[in-house]
């Protein structure tokens, strides 16, 4: 176990704040803290360790995120961290912060519903349009521009929009 002196607790807070501010390379309005991708920060004799978790197994943004964290911490004079990818517990959209959900919506991406359960084989979802708020919407494509998004269309304002898939 790691014993933390008072100043290492302060350092841990700094690391969390700096690493947490790293932007998602594919959705630049969100930070990795908003997304819940930043899982843990440890400060001990071995240095700084940062845990991140992928949203999807094949998420191509993980390498960039790890690199950005290292750059941000080095730039802040905190030295080079060890960034580890942890798989357990599996990331879920429930970890996205309320602030993150609000930012997504402002950016034009419908945020995932909270606490949604598994979807049925031929499930029907209701997604509100991030532009006009109407719920008369329909999916265009289950797989959107990135692994974490689907493409939808609003039947009220006729605008297409990205939907951050719930999982």
């Amino acid at each position: 176990m790691v014993s933390q002196a008072p100043d290492s607790a302060a350092l841990r807070d700094d690391v969390w704040r700096i690493a947490g501010a790293v932007q998602d390379p594919e959705i630049p309005v969100l930070t990795i803290a908003d997304l819940g991708v930043l899982r843990d920060v440890r400060v001990n004799d071995a240095g700084i360790e940062v845990d991140i978790t992928p949203t999807y197994c094949g998420c191509p943004a993980m390498t960039t995120i790890a690199l950005e964290i290292a750059i941000a911490l080095e730039r802040a004079g905190l030295g080079r961290p060890t960034v580890k990818t942890v798989l357990s517990p599996a990331w879920t959209t429930d970890w996205m912060s309320d602030e993150g959900r609000a930012k997504l919506k402002d950016y034009g991406i419908a945020p995932p519903p909270k606490g949604a359960g598994r979807r049925a084989l031929f499930g029907i979802e209701q997604v509100a349009c991030p532009h006009c708020g109407a719920t008369d919407t329909a999916p265009i494509a289950e797989f959107g521009s990135t692994a974490c998004k689907a493409l939808w269309r609003c039947n009220a304002c006729r605008e297409p929009f990205d939907y951050f898939k719930c999982h």
């Binding site: 992928p54 999807y56 197994c57 942890v86 798989l87 357990s88 517990p89 599996a90 990331w91 598994r118 979807r119 289950e142 797989f143 898939k165 999982h167």
Partner: peptide, 14 residues
């Protein structure tokens, strides 16, 4: 394996 499974099962549902 349990950790990999927790991610993979969500993807396979899609």
């Amino acid at each position: 394996l349990a950790a990999i499974a927790a991610k993979a099962e969500k993807e396979m549902a899609y």
